[in-house]
Amino acid sequence: MGPSGIGKTTLLKLIGGQLRPDSGRVLVGGLDFQRLSRKQLFDARAKMGMLFQSGALFSDLTVFENIAFPLRAHTQLPDEMIRDIVVMKLNAVGLRGARNLMPSELSGGMTRRVALARTIALDPDLIMYDEPFAGQDPIAMGVLVQLIRLLNDALGLTSVLVSHDISEALSICDHAIIIADGRVIGAGAPSELKAMDSPLVNQFINGLPDGPVPFHFPAGDYAQDLLTNR
């Protein structure tokens, strides 16, 4: 977790190997992504999934084809089998009836659920969520929160969730890390975080408008500014 613009999404892209760090190394499952060839990298990525903020469904394919896409790309399964898997995954997110819709016909919450179904299509070991709750209505948010936790436990996978929706994120996570100013300012189980007395962590968790992160963008003296304007 962390305030906007702090580099949370960048961190996920580093884990996924889409960006290269200027210095340091990123190890995922013991593999150093910076040392892998392009092909090895793509093979390694088949074992991880990422849910993008916008869902990133392929807009020219139906819901069904979207979920079948990773299966077709990575396996040689016959069509009937792919169909069964897709129906199962869609059922898991409760959208079995929407399989013939186009992505443009889906609501925001449904888009994200379809994207989630696509992400788990290949049964990855690691799923990264990039702001899964941003811009969702309360019902869709509740559904997503529950789904993420359920899928995590049912499939036995590792989930990395990036968010600034504190209460939702804390309600489902086992371990939370808050980053700000380019460093970790607090880490631990949700209860530990809430008990921390760091003012920055406090401001963030409780959503206070002013504090160590100031309300005002850095500027000169207010009175001075008003007077010199003439």
Partner: peptide, 8 residues
């Protein structure tokens, strides 16, 4: 990006 992350 999501295609890349799917290993395609």
């Amino acid at each position: 990006s999501s295609m890349e992350m799917m290993g395609v």
